[in-house]
Write a protein that binds this DNA or RNA. Structure first.
Lengths: 212, 212
DNA sequence: TAGATTGTTAATCGATTAACAATC
DNA sequence: TAGATTGTTAATCGATTAACAATC
């Protein structure tokens, strides 16, 4: 198991995880795929298929134990691990992410913030002093850095991405609208906020056409 | 045409739009599906299929005119329209989005910011004074509001979403980790940043397993 | 005209759903 | 034990890719 799991399945895992969090909050101990399917609006079949990509977490006649399934999914998603993260680009988005509470909750520790603008260097965000981008290499050399969060403009994105990749960062969380393609040993998660904005514009257009 | 276009196709449209923007920048006048496919890393066949959901924008033997395809996609995505937007939740993320430059570029005008915290009310973000959430109803009554950007905590999300929907907002851009399900006349685009973070955690785990 | 490349139909592939035997 | 619900195989559905006639 665990191999050849499709991207579609993987992107649903955090969603399962969120629903299980909610169940735990209201103290529900067990859940069947049928009941979960009603809550989530997907088929019970899909839930069972998805989960069975990673193991038989359920029990016939009983369903799934909420807490243990939650723990298992957390493990698969790496929530139990600690990742050291740096933010490159201390603008508005970098600032927002530095203060993002889910960050720590998902296993990420922010250990550095960098910017190219000398006026920002030395200022503090969320208890961390902004450093010059020139310090990046020596910083990563001294501090194990697992992921880099890139909140910089498109034009510098691929240069910076390649640099951090070369310095041994394992993952990149890319907030620029530019697609990142990097070779081999680094994984990339693109956010592309403005894509969502355009999809929203499309959907509103559709909606208005229907109501005509 | 234009009906029954799958979500997969729609989510690729902003990507095409971005690549066309880049082509325009470097002054490329025309492009074949083959060349675009090489740049984007998807098949030429898919590009032609996708575009033909909306019309025959190309010309046999020639390819696609970059500028006119760009304009057509822009129209489909509503980039040529103006949408009035408000932000609810003037925390870090609300603040970042208020200053987000792509916002205006995609046809959105920010006309109001709201927060429940009295200490924030009266302060200015990006030239707009934060109002109390109590003013929301009267504000939307007086000012045509197309979309609401929700950057508030999960616990209040569905209440606020239902409220703005009832007040006639057409679209919701939801930044809380909670899935929003709303009836009928309002479209929702969920962002769920922490999902991306967990997918990143998963991918890093996979990567490490391979390199073992 | 000849060459290129589209629009579109048909074939393939993969993902979702249905069904049911296994089993708690 | 009987009932419930899983894990898993098989059937269906949809999305992607290939192929090619139409045509610029």
């Amino acid at each position: 198991m665990d191999k050849n799991v499709s991207a579609a399945v993987i992107r649903r895992l955090p969603r399962y995880y969120r629903y299980l969090t909610d169940l735990l909050k209201v103290d529900i101990k067990r859940i069947s795929s049928k009941e979960l399917s009603e809550r989530m609006g997907i088929t019970a079949s899909q839930i069972r298929q998805d989960l069975n990509c990673f193991g038989g977490f359920g029990q016939q006649g009983y369903g799934y134990n909420v807490e243990s399934l939650y723990r298992e999914l957390g493990k698969i998603l790496g929530v139990d691990k600690r990742f050291n993260a740096i933010i490159i680009g201390a603008g508005n988005m970098g600032n927002a992410l530095a203060n993002y509470p889910n960050f720590k909750r998902r296993g990420y520790d922010l250990i550095g913030i960098f910017d190219i603008n000398p006026e920002l260097v030395g200022k503090e965000i969320s208890g961390i002093t902004i450093q010059s981008i020139d310090e990046l290499e020596s910083f990563i050399g001294k501090n194990k850095t697992d992921i880099a969060i890139l909140t910089i403009p498109s034009q510098s994105i691929s240069e910076v991405a390649e640099k951090v990749a070369a310095l041994g960062v394992k993952g990149i969380w890319n907030f620029s609208p530019q697609d990142l393609k990097l070779s081999g040993d680094v994984v990339v998660e693109n956010v592309h906020l403005s894509d969502g904005l355009m999809v929203l514009g499309y959907k509103i257009g559709e909606l208005e056409q229907q109501n005509r």
